[in-house]
Nucleic acid binder design. Structure first.
Lengths: 342, 342
DNA sequence: TTGAAAGCGCTAACAA
DNA sequence: TTGTTAGCGCTTTCAA
């Protein structure tokens, strides 16, 4: 590579324009009380020299960096990815830069990511805590210093504001639908994702309360677990039934494994997911799922962060999900399939 | 929220321990030449006061922040997400923090993300440039200041080091396989993703060179385009054929739409993807695809960044992909499907 | 309206 | 081994 250019500082611009660095600062920040000619001259000099502000110097002086951090457990979960994308847009529109860091599904990495963000004096932190209890320390460390919002998963006793979808309400929508579509005598199965994240636990508990006779399997939030759960079910000689997965990625794994083993969906097994974001376009048949209101959630997060300090008591925002009917639970009514050859 | 704590500085720790702030700095950085007792005392004071280093102060002084940035066009592409995850691990192991920013598939946002990272004095930048020509300015602005590597997509004439998979080689593997599995007289279709990103263009051109008689359709790197392309094909009254998609997400959309419209895979249509990451577990039947060597790519990026400056000439690292056989192109040999009831 | 000066928190050169 | 001091680039009083 060619030599890197030395970075141009305000001093350089000031000298070039024949003013003091205060004037450069004022010109760049658009201060009102300033001679327009001088401002022009400064801006031109900055342009000519290719000046770009050193945000570290600014942040050190101002005691804040115009950045909001997002820590998620794992980029590879499409729901989190969709969330990161949308949250970025929302913060950008509000004048913040969103920087994202993955905890690599590891507690010490998560803790490290928090420290690093704090050390960088970011303005606020949004975090999807990996673990319902073990993430507390990291979460509280952040909350002690900057406005912090937990999203999707929460450390219950932390007192840190939380935004998520109403998992119980979502599960109720699903349970009602399950009753509608499950034939007499067929099994209902809930394929969960452990109990160490609050969303997994809440969904599982809500389902257990409504359908205590269901069969419960527990794994992780990924496709592989869906495949594995399907194999487990078939090994148990289940011939059919309705399967509720606690995430769309799991539901997709279930569907594809069941189909690969010759089971028909929805005739033999019906499959229902949860999230409604990111992967539903991959599914065949289209997945019946509960859509989390991602736009409202992002708006709520921004709101909480902006208003931080005005509401001293801890806050919890639960937004209503909606059931999206796919073909993974109900046969097409028209039964029409376009004939070969279009 | 409760009051945020004032941040504790080295001064505070120094006073508490009864030493100078230089000693605090030394204790924390693990300098050899230091009285172990003093170090102990300092570390204890830091612990007691809950001191955490202000990385901005450090970075301003040291003229570098121990962070590497990654800018990608879009979190929602599972290949990019997988890449971000893996790259994070690799950099973490090498002692860097990886912060990720999305360009939101927009050039001015991409440009802004670059400026912001540069302003934060990060150590190096990895970027998947959105556009083969329009991203040049942002890319070169970065490269002028810090070690910069383009990944997956490139701005050809920029002279900025590039790491990617050998798209031509990948397409050759695919073309050979296409010849093997396509019945006499059946159509070969290439479903691309425009020509404004280098990877899309390279794959398309390589395929066109090998199979000029194929039908070429162009769209974007997402599932929706896969669905749409499938509909286009059926409208053209294609009854069957082999479809090569320039990304797995497109291939998944194609498969699910074709199947939803009653076509069988691989009997009627065979589908081949490109990327080999993350999404293949979702596919039914399992996708035949070209797997990009993601681990080697990440290693190459780290290597390039670490060695930056030693190799003045521009560098290009093309790594070999491999064909992964799925069932989307070939019928199972044993034809066995587990009987109902396991 | 402008400039001089101080200082954000840190580290590193230098002196003791 | 330790402390003193200077200064990274910036913004913000305070004076002029």
């Amino acid at each position: 590579m060619s030599e890197r250019s030395q970075s141009i500082t305000m001093r350089d611009v000031a000298e070039h324009a024949g003013v003091s660095s205060s004037s450069v600062s004022r010109a760049l920040s658009g201060s009102r009380s300033m001679n327009p000619d001088v401002r022009e001259r400064v801006l031109r000099s900055a342009e000519v020299l290719g000046y770009e502000v050193n945000l570290l110097g600014r942040a050190l002086r101002q005691q804040r960096l115009n950045v909001v951090g997002l820590i998620l457990p794992d980029f590879s979960n499409p729901f989190f990815a969709a969330m990161a994308e949308h949250l970025g847009e929302v913060f950008r529109a509000a004048g913040f830069e969103l920087l994202v860091s993955s905890a690599g599904d590891d507690l010490s990495t998560e803790r490290h990511a928090v420290s690093s963000f704090l050390g960088q004096q970011i303005q606020a932190l949004v975090i999807i805590p990996k673990d319902e209890t073990e993430s507390r320390e990291a979460l509280e460390a952040a909350s002690r210093r900057i406005p912090t919002v937990q999203f999707d998963r929460r450390v219950a006793t932390s007192g840190v504001p939380y935004v998520g979808c109403d998992n119980r309400a979502g599960i109720e929508l699903i349970a009602r639908h399950v009753r509608d579509v499950t034939p007499q005598g067929e099994r209902v199965v809930f394929v969960g994702a452990g109990v160490s994240s609050s969303s997994a636990r809440e969904r599982r508990e809500a389902f257990a309360a409504l359908m205590p006779d269901a069969l419960f399997l527990d794994g992780t939030f990924d496709v592989e677990w869906g495949h594995q759960a399907a194999r487990l079910l078939l090994e148990r000689s289940e011939r059919g039934g309705t399967i509720v997965a606690s995430a769309d990625v799991i539901a997709l794994g279930l569907q594809s494994e069941l189909q690969a083993r010759g089971r028909r969906i929805p005739q033999d097994f019906r499959v229902i997911g949860f999230d409604g974001i990111g992967v539903t376009g991959y599914a065949l048949p289209a997945l019946t799922t509960v859509r989390q209101p991602i736009e409202e959630m992002c708006a709520a997060i921004l709101e909480l962060i902006s208003r931080d300090g005005l509401h001293p008591e801890s806050t919890e925002v639960l937004l209503a999900p909606e059931l999206v009917h796919g073909k993974s639970t109900v046969l097409e009514e028209d039964g029409a399939v376009a004939p070969l050859g279009g």
